[in-house]
């Protein structure tokens, strides 16, 4: 394509396209950038400028304030626990579900595939699921956060497609000749060959656990079991609501308001920190996951 000679019209097209793309990219990126800049700025001076493009009066006070906040530590601890345990269960269960479905010799493959994918399109709904968890006696425990969503059908299909296309049948056959069982075959031969897709699964599920709030909102009643996102909801959403309802404004009040605004920015950064750091490093894996999934819609 690059060898094709460009007409002036084409050049203009490229210039316009590139400008638009850069503009869109800046608009998409700016909200994140703004929060990072605001979090290290002096809260009183954030709004002095028209658009924040550089920290105003570098200041880490608000970070100090959030790390003195006990809730945040509880939230962090719980979220790390739920994410680790949850992701481990997710990946293990998804492998177990996906591998047999990828084998042609698996009799009943279509029945299982149908049963699993059906759940994507029709579910019992919120209350019937709640009642199931209640009868299992797992409310207000880590299990209600990690078991009911143990397998995402979407990820299961991605994984199955990977096994189907990347693990040759000949490999299996030679293993069987050597007297290998299905279980050993899966863990000793297939999985070591599937590390790229397992990395993708860890990322997809891990991000999901880290970011989820709704399940904990319904199922968790003890404050010391709340994940980070629930505390964030209290600070970012509930407080915002109060601010917007507009209460009396005196000098001291607005000072406190400003300090609290600063805390909000730094808490957003602190809670998204693991992803913000990992994101540029992991983006290749995410894209790979999408590519594998795209092979078979």
């Amino acid at each position: 394509m690059d060898t094709i000679k460009q007409t002036p019209g084409e050049k203009a097209f490229e210039a316009v396209n590139l400008t638009l793309v850069l503009l869109i990219t800046i608009i998409l990126l700016y909200p994140l950038l703004f929060v990072i800049l605001a979090s290290v700025s002096d809260p009183r001076r954030i709004y002095d400028t028209f658009l924040l493009v550089w920290p105003q009066g570098f200041n880490l006070e608000s970070y100090k304030a959030i790390f003195e906040n006990g809730d945040i530590w509880i939230g962090y601890r719980n979220t790390i626990l739920y994410t680790t345990v949850g992701t481990a269960i997710n990946v293990f269960m998804t492998i177990l579900g996906a591998y047999p479905l990828s084998r042609r010799r698996f009799y009943g493959k279509n029945v299982f595939t149908f049963l699993f994918t059906f759940t994507m399109f029709f579910s019992g709904g919120l209350i019937p699921t709640y009642l199931v968890n209640q009868s299992l006696g797992i409310l207000n425990s880590i299990w209600v956060l990690v078991l009911p969503g143990a397998i995402s059908v979407f990820n299961l299909i991605i994984m199955r497609t990977y096994f189907q296309t990347q693990i040759p049948v000949e490999l299996e056959e030679s293993a069987f000749v050597d007297g290998c069982s299905d279980w050993r075959l899966l863990f000793k031969i297939v999985l070591p060959l599937s590390m790229p897709i397992i990395a993708v699964m860890i990322l997809f599920y891990g991000v999901g656990h880290w970011n989820s709030y709704f399940d904990s909102l319904i199922y968790m009643t003890d404050r010391d079991k709340f994940p980070l996102q629930l505390f964030l909801r209290e600070i970012l959403i509930k407080n915002s609501m109060q601010d917007m309802l507009g209460v009396a404004v005196d000098e001291q009040y607005s000072q406190r308001m400003m300090a609290r605004e600063g805390i909000k920015y730094s808490i957003v950064v602190a809670s998204s920190l693991p992803l913000l750091i990992l994101y540029p490093l992991l983006s290749k894996f995410f894209e790979k996951g999408i590519l594998v999934g795209a092979i078979k819609g």
Binding site: N211, S212, I237, L275
Partner: peptide, 8 residues
Amino acid sequence: PHFISVVV
């Protein structure tokens, strides 16, 4: 932005 939680 896809990786930001809905709360954030």
